[in-house]
Amino acid sequence: MRVERPDFLTHSHGARKASLPVPNADALAHSAALLTHIRQEIAAAGGIISFRRYMELALYTPGLGYYMAGQTRFGAAGDFVTAPEMGRVLAAVLARTLQSDPGPDGILEFGAGSGALAGQILRDLPDTPYTLLEPSPDLQARQQAAVPGIQHRQTLPEHWRGVLLAHEVLDAMPVQVLELDASGQLHECGVRWTGEALEWALLPPPVATPLAARLAPYVPHWPRPYRAEINLTAEAWLREVAARLDSGVILLIDYGHEAAEFYHPQRQTGSLRAYYRHHWLDDPFYLPGLCDLTAHVDFTALMTAAVAAGLEVAFYGNLARFLIEHGLAEVYGALCAQAGDDGIFALNNEIKRLTLPQEMGESFKVLILKKRENV
Rank of each mutant, 00 (worst) to 15 (best):
C189N: 05
G256P: 00
Y332A: 00
A320H: 03
A33V: 06
A228H: 04
Q185D: 12
E199L: 14
A305H: 00
L198S: 07
L108P: 04
Q266E: 02
T97M: 06
G115T: 10
P6G: 12
G310H: 06
L328I: 10
P126V: 07
K365Q: 05
S183H: 12
V169P: 00
G75E: 14
P62V: 05
C336F: 06
Q268L: 03
E235C: 10
P21A: 06
A329N: 06
L232P: 01
F285S: 15
A320G: 01
A118F: 05
V241K: 10
A69T: 00
R273I: 15
P174M: 01
A213E: 12
E196C: 15
L367H: 10
I250E: 02
L178D: 03
R267S: 04
L203A: 07
Q266V: 04
T128P: 08
V241H: 07
L59K: 11
P102N: 09
V207S: 02
L281H: 09
D101G: 09
E85P: 14
P220L: 03
E179L: 14
Y275Q: 14
T72Y: 04
P129E: 08
I253Y: 07
V366A: 13
R273K: 14
T97F: 13
A301G: 15
A306N: 03
L245G: 05
S100Q: 10
